[in-house]
């Protein structure tokens, strides 16, 4: 599996006066997210178990890993917005 986004950068420029730049290392959130992820996996496994008992096709755990895969694939997303009518405001967002 691909690793999830490890950094996020954001840049907001409002004409020539205001400027905001942020580079956030998302990887420091990974250890914080791990316990939550483990709990969710356990809950999904239980849901699958109950699905099996009730003769339904289990798929919650697979879906959960699919969501994780989708989140990982967000790396490389870039958004750039330039609003010339408001002091040429620029908002740029990147996920790495």
């Amino acid at each position: 599996m691909k690793c999830p986004p490890y950094a996020m950068s954001m840049r907001i420029v409002d004409g020539k006066c205001a400027k905001f730049q942020l580079w956030f290392p998302l990887f420091i959130l990974w250890p914080l997210a791990l316990p939550f992820l483990l709990l969710t996996v356990i809950a999904a496994l239980f849901a699958d178990l109950f699905s099996l008992i009730s003769l339904h096709k289990p798929g919650y755990t697979r879906f959960l890993f699919g969501v994780l895969g989708t989140v990982s694939e967000t790396r490389g997303t870039e958004v750039f917005i330039q609003d010339k009518s408001h002091h040429s405001r620029i908002v740029a967002f990147t996920l790495r």
Partner: peptide, 18 residues
Amino acid sequence: DNVNVKIPLALLRAGLKL
């Protein structure tokens, strides 16, 4: 005004697979 968005095709694939 400009809006530019760059989306990885792998994200579309993963989203559709989801």
